[in-house]
């Protein structure tokens, strides 16, 4: 039974959006996941949800970085809603890159996020890209 006490919650105006772009390198993933966890904490997600989102972003970014074109970027956008954060993580890839969904990593994503999907497609003048979209709710759905 969620209590309505908006005055004491640190939540900010709805649908705040944050975008970060880094080189697609594993060494920069801790920065991205720290942003994810900070946004969730400030949006007053419960502790399980904060930690789940942090690990999900870590997993998604690590997967994508492994498939990214050398020298390319990792782009992550976070849309913070009242009770949900939507994440899109994207890298440019080679033409035939696919993201296996019969892997343990995918199961990790499915468990940690409330919803997860992968998109392939061209961006920026036809360059192939992979995008992982995931949603995380602020707490257990009641």
């Amino acid at each position: 039974m969620p209590q309505q006490e908006p005055s004491s919650a640190p939540a900010e105006p709805r649908a705040a959006s944050v975008e970060i772009r880094t080189a697609a390198r594993a060494a920069l993933i801790p920065t991205v996941r720290a942003v994810a966890s900070d946004l969730a904490a400030r949006a007053d997600f419960d502790l399980d949800a904060i930690s789940d989102l942090r690990m999900a972003v870590d997993e998604a970014c690590a997967t994508l970085v492994g498939l990214a074109e050398p020298g390319s970027s990792l782009r992550c956008t976070f849309d913070v809603h009242d009770e949900r954060i939507d994440v899109a993580a994207q890298v440019l890839t080679g033409a035939d890159a696919t993201l296996p969904t019969d892997s343990f990593g995918w199961r990790v994503l499915q468990t940690l996020a409330d919803q997860v999907a992968v998109e392939t497609g061209a961006v920026d003048g036809g360059r192939p890209a992979l995008t992982i979209r995931l949603h995380k709710l602020a707490g257990p759905a009641l």
Binding site: P10, D46, D48, G139
Partner: peptide
């Protein structure tokens, strides 16, 4: 019955 939110811990 679930983990608390930061605001609940603060209170």
């Amino acid at each position: 019955g679930r983990s608390p939110k930061p605001s609940e811990i603060a209170r």
